[in-house]
Design a protein around this nucleic acid. Sequence first.
DNA 1: CATATTTGTTACATTAAGATTACACCTATA
DNA 2: TATAGGTGTAATCTTAATGTAACAAATATG
Lengths: 231, 231
Amino acid sequence: MQIKLLIVEDEKPIRDMMKVALSRHGFHILEAGSGGEGLDVVDAEQPDLILLDWMLPDMSGIDVAKKLKGHYESREIPIIMVTARGEEEDKIKGLEFGADDYITKPFSPKELAARIRAVLRRVSPIKTEKKVEISQVSLDPGSHQVVANGVDISLGPTEFKLLHYFMLNPNRVYNRTQLLDNVWGANVFVEERTVDVHIRRLRKALSEGGCDNYIQTVRGTGYRFSAPETE
Amino acid sequence: MQIKLLIVEDEKPIRDMMKVALSRHGFHILEAGSGGEGLDVVDAEQPDLILLDWMLPDMSGIDVAKKLKGHYESREIPIIMVTARGEEEDKIKGLEFGADDYITKPFSPKELAARIRAVLRRVSPIKTEKKVEISQVSLDPGSHQVVANGVDISLGPTEFKLLHYFMLNPNRVYNRTQLLDNVWGANVFVEERTVDVHIRRLRKALSEGGCDNYIQTVRGTGYRFSAPETE
DNA sequence: CATATTTGTTACATTAAGATTACACCTATA
DNA sequence: TATAGGTGTAATCTTAATGTAACAAATATG
């Protein structure tokens, strides 16, 4: 799965430069020109890492960082602060408010890519390897095991990734395009209907352990994973 | 509205192939056989996306891209560069000069269509999906869930959109035409009275959670959503 | 009070969306 | 090379959602 980076930076030339440089390193780039827009993109796309400019037109980088770290869904996303030379003191503040690293303009694309990878290496093993449990279903990426109601479930690679993605983002509806982008990967070209089939396979597998209503269809929108109503 | 693509490509057979393939995917196709012609078509038709061949008889794809990105009217139009194998380095240059993606010949129609859609998705504005709460009713677009008085409400797509629209604009009366335009979408031909039926369905669904007077009839005018009088 | 107009309600045919199945095609591995 | 598991696609079946019409009820109007 391609890594999604969000660049929050108001000056388009700099943003473009970063975009080109980072695309070349194999990252998928999302962009935002202001703090508010950045928050929206985070909400909609859940990037793997955020490059956050210190000076933004609508709110400061710190405010954005604070907001991100204050929300359950975004608190785990690592942030690299981008500061201009001479804002040295702000680095400290940035780190205090939850940034994972910082980089000073001007920087070389190589340095940027290296820092990004370093941060991801530091953060992602924890996030990815962590066992996820939701109600009666548990998924352990380390041992590649899924257990539903105590029953061992066997899944194909795609079903596994799909379930993992759903469980990392429960209670949230995804349409087929989003699932293809996020589970299959951005550069894969498959029919949307294929998602249906894998949903079916996953549901079937989960029902082996009696977990039947975890994947819900939202007609006209997509699918959602959530613990079923306990009645 | 159908999406307009402009294909700038000097070799007619390739152009035709692309045209046929992309028409089948529901795009409206414009064509140009040279860079100059391409610029003219952009000026006249304002396509939603441009497929730009790298090698053109009169000017290079980069020159065209530069011209396009240099003009206010065309600078926002996304460009996908079409390169032949072995022009790998040019891809980078293309991206630097403002192309949004590239594709290497030969490519499958499916890949092309997917890339186009991916670029359009990336470029088009990301809408905010914030949870809305009014009195006892809450609607969360992220999870596509509506809760009234703590009770989960199940709604069809249209009722959901209708309620969302009302909740984003509470205390405001809309007539049936306005609701059709804003909820159903412009240029959709349905009877005005259809709105009544959906209002009825929405009211019924909300009353499952005891929320009964949220949608008010304004005789001779239309409907309004607002928290009922607390008596 | 009678009548016209507007809205509420229900039932029903049609349509669109999703579920399911079967099958062909990989790809890896014994 | 034979086999098995996994994946994507297309065809078909199933079900939910939608729009319309017909009638009932409510509200205005003369």
